[in-house]
Simulated assay, not measured.
Amino acid sequence: MIRSAFLILAIAAFAPLQAVADPPTAHLPVAFEATIAPGDTLDSVLGHAGIPGTVRAEAALALSGVYDLTDLRPGHRIEWTTASWDPASLTRLSLFVEDGVEIALSFDGPIAAQRLDPPVRETDRRETLTLNGTLYDALMARNAPERFAVDLTALLAGQVDFRRDLKGGETFALVWQEDQLPDGSIAGEPRLSYARLELADRVLELVATEAAGPVIVFEDGEAVQRSAAPILGARLSSVFGRRNHPVLGGVRMHTGIDYAAPVGTDVSATGAGRVIFAGTIRGYGTTIDIDHGGGVVTRYAHLSEIAEDVRVGTRVKAGDEIGAVGATGLVSGPNLHYEVRVDGRPVDPKDQDALPEQEIASAEDLDTLATWRSETGFMTAIDGERG
């Protein structure tokens, strides 16, 4: 819990002003600040500062119209001012939450709340890395988003094994966009547009046309895969195969892969298909099954919710949002369980033959590939002939 002693002392320090006849500072507001610690709530922080329960309740009610107070996290800040003649009287309160967003309360008249989003500037980042260790280490050395280590490993899993196929010295080029706040910090999630991995015997390229949409993987200039990651920026917490079950105990077969992520994180369809189940399955919790044809079905389990427009019969494309991460079913914490079944039999989702062939690259996709090659200086003979 936040140490409240300094807050109470600060309030007490201004009490003598009430005994002074109209000093120059008698009507100036007094400012306070606190940082949320594990276990803290807005109510507990203001309560320790001596703010009456009725005022705290009114503030929480007004804030609920623009912000869910259960989203307050350690590290978020609270700033408030009180009248110097009444340290328990709020005159203004602001929450500073993720991405520089301020949730401000005004007490001039009826309590009113508003969300103040800071101005952001979209910036392009381009890096060319030499892989002499792990992809994660190479990204960290260039201050690139660490989440790309997970995303790229998942998206390119059908073509390369990052643990076995990399011998050292490979070139990895990346292009992404990020939103920069006025103080130079980054808001929201980075958006990958292009990646290129030069192996000894082939070149792999990845083109993403939308932040959470499908990506197309090219091998030596030929489109070989069109898919989307089921979740972006998550940690791979369990792989396919036998493991110690985290809830039931004992060694059991794990029929998919798990991604650990906060409740509410978007979950996307990995390929085009038709929803054949959307409901609850014992052990899996809230679950969606998508039929991709050819006997292939993907399963997305432990969800907290199913997207409003997703139901049995709904047709989806790679990258379509279908639900959100949860902790339903037999789980030890929030995660997405992603599973691929072929003719009813679970297979490793990282198997490049797990999903059926689908339309891969359009003429527009090929033009996008050529554009990124040109802009990053990776023109090839094929591009020259086409131009």
Results as ranks from 00 to 15, higher is better:
Ala324Ile: 06
Pro346Cys: 07
Ala21Ile: 08
Leu69Lys: 14
Trp176Phe: 13
Leu236Lys: 07
Tyr300Asn: 14
Arg191Ser: 10
Pro190Thr: 05
Asp343His: 11
Ala228Thr: 14
Val55Pro: 02
Ala10Asn: 05
Val296Asp: 11
Arg235Glu: 14
Tyr284Arg: 02
Gly384Tyr: 10
Arg252Gly: 04
Gly344Trp: 03
Ile216Cys: 01
Pro52Arg: 03
Thr380Arg: 00
Glu170Pro: 04
Leu61His: 15
Ala12Asn: 09
His292Ser: 12
Arg235Leu: 15
Asp71Gln: 13
Leu129Pro: 10
Asp201Cys: 14
Val297Pro: 02
Asp320Cys: 08
Thr25Pro: 05
Ser238Lys: 15
Glu178Ser: 08
Leu69Pro: 00
Gln18Phe: 02
Val247Lys: 13
Gly39Trp: 12
Glu359Thr: 12
Tyr284Cys: 09
Leu248Ser: 09
Arg115Phe: 06
Leu116Val: 08
Leu369Ser: 04
Thr54Cys: 06
Ser227Trp: 03
Gly75Lys: 09
Pro119Trp: 15
Gly39Ala: 07
Asp266Gln: 10
Val207Leu: 09
Glu189Ser: 08
Ala83Lys: 08
Ala173Val: 14
Asp22Arg: 12
Asp353Tyr: 13
Val312Pro: 07
Asp117Leu: 12
Gln352Pro: 10
Leu129Asp: 05
Ile8Met: 02
Pro24Trp: 03
Thr41Gln: 12
His302Tyr: 12
Val340Ala: 08
Thr130Tyr: 08
Glu359Cys: 05
Ala141Lys: 07
Thr380Met: 03
Gly53Pro: 02
Arg315Leu: 05
Tyr300Val: 09
Ala234Glu: 00
Ala211Ser: 15
Thr82Phe: 05
Arg164Trp: 02
Glu189Arg: 09
Ala88Pro: 02
Ser89Arg: 00
Val160Trp: 01
Leu135Pro: 04
Ala113Ser: 14
Val316Thr: 13
Gly344Ile: 05
Thr123Asn: 10
